[in-house]
Simulated assay, not measured.
Amino acid sequence: MVVSDRIQSCIYENAHVALDQEEYQKRYGTLSDRFDKAKARFEEIEEAIGSKQSRRAAIETFLNDLRDANIVDNFEVSLWCGLLDFVTIYSRDNVVFTFRNGTEIRYSG
């Protein structure tokens, strides 16, 4: 049962059955705390998803602009140097390319 359903059930029971109000408040408080924690976590996850979706859209736009420009038929050093900001090499099989627009592409061999 979802926490919000349990809260509704708790409220309904209190309205229709004579309950010890101290016990009711304790039970309601516990459920309310669980709900608040779950809601906060949900909002964190929503924010992370939104951030990742924005980043993905920016990367897709960047890649589409590159493709539409028809300038990447063959490798050109000047184009590469113009787009790339720096490369971080962690190991032979773990390299991160950071472009001037902030986009990062990880190579894992």
Rank of each mutant, 00 (worst) to 15 (best):
E46M: 10
L19C: 15
D20K: 15
D5A: 12
S108C: 03
Q8N: 09
N64P: 00
S9V: 09
R56W: 01
I89N: 08
G82E: 06
V77G: 00
N74V: 03
S108N: 08
F42D: 15
V87N: 03
T30I: 10
Y28H: 12
A38M: 05
V17K: 08
W80G: 01
L19Y: 09
L79E: 02
I105Q: 08
G82V: 10
D5E: 14
F97N: 03
I45W: 11
V95G: 04
Q21I: 13
G102Q: 12
Q21A: 15
L84T: 11
E47S: 11
C10E: 08
F97W: 07
K26D: 04
C81F: 01
L66G: 02
Q53S: 12
E44G: 00
R67C: 00
N101E: 04
D36L: 13
H16D: 02
Q53I: 13
V96M: 04
V95K: 13
N14G: 10
H16I: 10
M1A: 06
D33W: 04
N74T: 04
F86P: 00
E60W: 00
N64E: 13
S51L: 13
S54G: 10
F75T: 05
N64I: 09
N101C: 06
S9A: 14
Y12P: 00
G50R: 07
E60L: 12
V77C: 01
Q53K: 15
D65C: 03
N74H: 03
W80S: 06
N14P: 03
A48Y: 08
F75A: 02
D93L: 01
E13T: 14
Y28L: 14
A15I: 07
V3I: 15
N70P: 00
A57V: 01
E44V: 00
S91K: 05
Q25I: 05
E76I: 03
A57N: 06
F99C: 02
Q21R: 15
A48N: 12
R67F: 11
T30M: 06
G29Y: 02
L63N: 05
H16C: 05
L83W: 01
E104S: 06
I105H: 07
R106G: 03
V2P: 04
N70M: 03
N14M: 06
H16E: 06
R27D: 06
Q53G: 00
D85T: 05
I11W: 01
T61K: 15
S4V: 14
V72I: 05
Q8R: 10
M1Q: 03
R55F: 01
I11K: 05
I59G: 01
R92P: 06
N70T: 04
A48E: 12
I49F: 08
V2L: 13
T103E: 09
R41L: 11
I71V: 04
E76F: 07
L83D: 10
T103W: 05
I49W: 02
A15T: 09
S78K: 15
T98C: 09
S32A: 05
E46F: 07
Q21P: 05
I11Q: 04
E23Q: 12
F75V: 04
G50M: 06
R100C: 01
D85N: 09
D73W: 01
Y90R: 13
R56V: 02
R106C: 05
R56F: 03
V3K: 11
R106E: 10
Q21V: 13
I11P: 00
E104Q: 13
A58N: 10
